[in-house]
Design a binder for these strands. Structure first.
Lengths: 218, 218
DNA sequence: GACGACTTGTCAGTCGCTGTCATGTTTGAC
DNA sequence: GTCAAACATGACAGCGACTGACAAGTCGTC
């Protein structure tokens, strides 16, 4: 996925924030840490689905994996974070796909194709995506945070979009705006898809939305 | 920004029908309540500007107006609410202006013109808008909530946008998407404007953003 | 085997927020 | 004018998210 590092960082030196993708040689400690994190997420997710996000306390989650509440917060910076990490990964994937789209493809089409990273899985099995959307839409604070996370995607994608647009003037506002518009379409499409409980393909909604905003594109 | 409410209605309009209809008018109690609310907002705002949103506790705000913390929460449902009410008013104003734009104006242009409700005041005096943006961007949870509030605007505006678009098919997804895209442009423009500290006109940023998303419009 | 890096639990405390109860104070009916 | 219902407030207790500090382990390395 990311071509960042495999050995550039000293083995055990302040790894607290580094957990983007599962690397292969992070050392035993880091791997157990990842394992705990994963387990924590799984358990938390189960509880969220079962009884709702708000109704689930951090104490419960911690107890369910047999650790103290304090330790939970050593793995996740907040309760919201447990959900948000799922979205952070998506941002990186979007950027990756977008960067590898054919150079001659126009920005809007490339964005649409990048979104296939999200659309694809929902067609193979919509359940996971639906659960994710349902949980995030039930708690207002969480919903808000997800929205904010998507503006982070914006910053990731905008530079890649800029490369596909020929307008050196005007700063990077144009590319950012176009990216933001595309992401807005994604959000709208997701909402529509959730509203019909995934019974109609997400791709259709997304196409509708993006074609309406830019008629004539793809 | 300042919500000069329905002051167009004569002061003692309901006086003569007061016993015939259930009073929708302020009434003394409701007016003192509004007064307290306003004072609370003013004081809170001062503290936010002075020492930051996160660094200001609800206890402080309450003490500054001489009431208990408990009573603060009888006027605002949350600390965030003190800031958010400023945005709720804007949504209504946008809808109002949009509804009154000439019917033959296309949707995108009408949206741009509606945004003048926001842009206008920033040209007369950018300070208020800048402070608002600065406060809301410094606290992540708050920023997220503002973003969410803007999706509420979306629901307000989308039906009005729909009327300006000729495509009965496809449900209301198209209008919603277009509205969301326009709002995304607004957000992006605001961010750019904040980044230059208001030294360049917001209108320019907004025009750039919206023209990039829909070339050829207005 | 000892040292240092790392992890954990416990405890105490802050802050946002809520329910409840016991006081006034206001309002509206009689 | 009186009185009861309606409302506003403060005080108190409590929950849940989150944090800092400390002490007690665990584990890899030299």
């Amino acid at each position: 996925m990311t071509a960042t590092d495999k050995s550039s960082v000293p083995v055990n030196f302040d790894r607290r924030y580094s957990d983007a993708v599962t690397t292969e040689k992070p050392g035993l400690r880091e791997r157990t840490r990842q394992a705990v994190r994963t387990q924590l997420m799984a358990v938390a997710w189960g509880l969220f689905v079962e009884q709702g996000y708000d109704a689930t306390t951090v104490d419960e989650i911690a107890a369910a994996v047999g650790m103290s509440q304090r330790s939970f917060f050593r793995y996740f910076s907040s309760k919201e974070d447990v959900v948000l990490v799922k979205f952070e990964a998506v941002g990186a994937m979007l950027a990756d796909v977008l960067a590898n789209r054919p150079a001659e493809e126009d920005a809007w089409t490339a964005l649409r194709r990048a979104f296939d990273v999200i659309v694809g899985p929902t067609e193979r099995d919509p359940r996971h995506g639906l659960v994710l959307l349902r949980i995030t839409s039930q708690a207002p604070a969480l919903r808000a945070r997800v929205l904010e996370e998507q503006t982070n995607w914006q910053e990731l994608l905008a530079p890649l979009v800029a490369r596909r647009m020929q307008q050196p003037a005007g700063g990077d506002l144009g590319p950012t705006a176009l990216t933001a518009a595309a992401l807005a379409c994604l959000v709208v499409a997701n909402a529509a898809w959730l509203r019909v409980d995934g019974t109609e393909p997400l791709a259709g909604f997304l196409d509708d939305a993006m074609r309406t905003v830019r008629p004539g594109a793809f």
